[in-house]
Nucleic acid binder design. Structure first.
Lengths: 350, 350
DNA sequence: CTGAAAGCGCTAACAA
DNA sequence: TTGTTAGCGCTTTCAG
């Protein structure tokens, strides 16, 4: 099937191609009668504008590039889905630049793909970039928004990772726990990725505010995985007597779920013997009855897309930093520490 | 920063724009010396071809559209990542068309976005399409490949869902189980999505070959979720006495993991009292020691991308159906049924 | 092997 | 409000 051109629509509607363009794009003025004629003709012929010709002539592509470090993790899938759907709604395609392919692929993205003038804007998701990569991004010469990470001089949206972690721990201290373990992520040496550090600092600040002394022996790395959380929790909960924490604050829900499973395997009840709290509100968190501080990655994606659309369609600048909401969701994995060690019911699903 | 045009490169290299184009694209012939001069000039100026101008002139976009029903599920993320990275490697961008946005968004994708002539080919992932949507896809007039689903007349890659499920159940019968429950997905009424049906049929065929009579009371729906699997397994395992299955074959790993957790909550040991097998090799399956029939969605994405690249870059047609591999992965959630009901060790991680 | 030149299909001045 | 027209930046005949 051969694609229909604007000239055919023009002919059928009895107008010039310029009028067709105006009627279809909404730019410029067209009399209602002619506009309708154009719309009818276009519909009858099944005309859809050829994006590359349109881009070439107008300088607009109606396409947004999303640069993302992985696709196969819950958070990123959520953000991408929210952004993509919102952009689609506004008439924008989304072209995906996934950096998971290693350094070669990564270099290609920054040296070639993004510079092809295929996008009107780029959304950078949770990216840790080199100064050179940032320079390339600016070289694209298009609006740039980042989410879940900070690039100097670029509007960014994100949750307050310190506050989030602090809130999770506050919930635990508020219940009366005083021996609280922490399972965090190892800060990467070669990266300035702040998330693990901030969540750790949040935990410590909460302790401090509650007047609890920080004990380095209670802070372990869990790698942000189920398995990592499980292993770290076994370590923490295997400690004898009063060294064993009565609560664990994990920097992510996956690790927190690992901790719940570790507790069960040790014969400890949650929240009877240990309370566990996480951060994220992961897909499976509700199932495990996990108390967590929810962030809303899908909505984060939507927000980021809106910032971009505002800028592109309405030439509206956004503030350089937008703070995204979080929310404590209390479920059944946390409770007051019990005075004596008597058996207790386990959480639903456990 | 203003983008560099082909004319500037031509001027700097002392050749015509035609020669620059030939040197950079590899189409046509250029003397080695001039080619080098062009390459140097392009590198010095940081020239990258403007994709829309190139597309308009050549009819090629170096972009592939991927149409996918969700992003936030493990399987789809994996397929997408595999396809995207492979395509990137070959110099193709990937534009994402996610159908999760509801009917309006869905209609927009098929009526507008895909027809914008922005893609050289489209990859349809696990799609259930209406005849009208299929017609639209053909109207795009570009190569079309589908994966994890079948569109009449379109090259498709996929695993044999019946064989996969049959193998999982065969593993159980092979161990000596004769009372085997099944947790499947509800076949959608308004869709011809074959997966749930095929996996159910695989289970039944395995039973039949083992000479075990199919008992409808042992086949439940689990919705392909952790929670669904948990609920269904509680149902199955709550049955008194000899009606209680000694093994469960689940149509997906998420449901199988739900079943393992249900067994634990009932105080049943896995695999001591119940064996559980799944299908997928989900991210968390190894952690739970789940025996499963693995499919390899990342590699599936890679394969699909290769088919497309072969067609686009080498004009090579692929066979209309490519069968993708699967593999039984035996871990610790399955064992022989035990003759008497004595306590047994549980699986690692459990 | 190379250059000149004619578009690719559309948009945006500009003129009417 | 509308049509005419000159490109947008590149690729690809076609001559040479």
């Amino acid at each position: 099937m051969q694609a229909v051109s604007i000239a055919e629509v023009a002919k059928r509607a009895g107008v010039s191609t310029a009028t067709v363009s105006r009627a279809l794009s909404g730019r410029g003025t067209v009399s209602p009668a002619r506009k309708q004629a154009v719309l009818d003709a276009a519909a009858a012929l099944g005309y859809v504008v050829a994006s590359n010709a349109s881009s070439l002539a107008s300088g607009r592509t109606r396409n947004v590039g999303v640069v993302i470090p992985f696709l196969d993790r819950w958070y990123f899938g959520q953000v991408l889905e929210g952004a993509q759907l919102t952009l689609l709604e506004a008439g924008y395609d989304v072209t995906l630049y996934n950096l998971a392919g290693g350094t070669r692929a990564r270099a290609q993205v920054f040296e070639q793909f993004l510079l092809r003038q295929r996008v009107d804007a780029v959304l950078a998701v949770a990216l840790e970039l080199t100064p050179h990569e940032i320079a390339r991004l600016h070289q694209v010469g298009k609006p740039l928004v980042c989410i879940g990470g900070v690039i100097p001089g670029v509007p960014s949206l994100g949750i307050d990772d310190l506050a989030v972690s602090e809130l999770a721990t506050d919930h635990l201290t508020g219940l009366g726990h005083t021996t609280i373990g922490f399972i965090g992520g190892k800060p990467e040496v070669d990266s300035d990725f702040q998330l693990p550090v901030q969540r750790f600092d949040g935990y410590r600040r909460s302790l401090q505010r509650a007047g609890i002394e920080f004990d380095p022996a209670l802070a372990l790395y869990g790698d942000f995985t189920l398995d990592g959380g499980y292993t770290a929790a076994k370590q923490l909960l295997g400690a004898p007597g009063r060294h064993r924490p009565t609560a664990i604050s994990a920097a992510s829900d996956e690790m927190a779920i690992g901790a719940i499973l570790a507790a069960r395997d040790l014969g400890l009840s949650v929240p009877g013997d240990v309370s566990v709290a996480g951060v994220d509100d992961y897909v499976h968190s509700e199932f495990f009855g996990l108390t967590t501080v929810a962030q809303f990655p899908y909505r984060q994606g939507v927000e980021a897309a809106r910032v971009i659309i505002d800028q592109l369609d309405h030439d509206r600048q956004s503030p350089s930093a937008i703070s995204l909401p979080h929310e404590l969701v209390v479920r059944s994995s946390t409770a007051r520490p019990r005075p004596h060690s008597s058996p207790d019911k386990t959480s639903p699903g456990g």
